[in-house]
Amino acid sequence: MSARTVPVRQAAVELLSVSKIHGRDAGAIRALDDVSLTFDSGTFTAVMGPSGSGKSTLLHCAAGLDKPTSGTVRIDGEDLSRYDEAGLTRLRRDRIGFVFQTFNLLQTLTVRQNVTLPLELAGRRPRRSDVDALLARLGIEERADHLPGELSGGQQQRVAFARAVLAEPAVIFADEPTGALDTNAARDVLHLLRSAVKENGRTIVMVTHDPNAASYADSVIFLADGRIVDTLARPSAEAVAAHMTRLGEGVR
């Protein structure tokens, strides 16, 4: 599967009128308010918005980690509401990869074991040489037998990325993947994400607060109060920052 063989854009993830209400009664918060959108296959989308605007909630619902209160989520055309927990687990294993800000890796397993875990739990053992080749491309082959605690934040994030791409998922979700990294490490990870999309036709949805990180994406979606308020194609860091400033004023 590569970008060249997919001339017609297909929807990797679709959300149809998705709403999510956290809590109930007096404490209820409408974190997503009737959101409809499509992430096309082979695209890199950034999701931005003020803190509390519902970015993480959007990601969790889109990835089947959390159930929307109403609306439909489809991954690769499959309606998530038709799956039970075990089914969702299988779907996550086969079609979805995750990279999060922190707490990404199991601290008791080595880098290699972390990377192959999802596949092994699915009953498939990847060839060692393939895994090593992937780690080598990410520049962490020498750390393959180390524990995550012995790696830098940027290296850990690359391990998480290796784990996410190994099963060749339909879509990779990343929630502030560079949030805990310094500028250089962040740049490496962002290059990695972008080349996965450009060269391998992967689909990536990334939540971020950083206009510079968002500028690596093909397009940016802006959320405020649980609604999509704006989108920006081929974003530059300056344009994104300007948008964010306006959003901040609009909210106040």
Binding site: R127, V131, R137, S195
Partner: peptide
């Protein structure tokens, strides 16, 4: 750094 790859072979 690129990720271009042939499919991962598994058994």
């Amino acid at each position: 750094m690129t990720t271009s790859t042939t499919a991962i072979r598994t058994r």
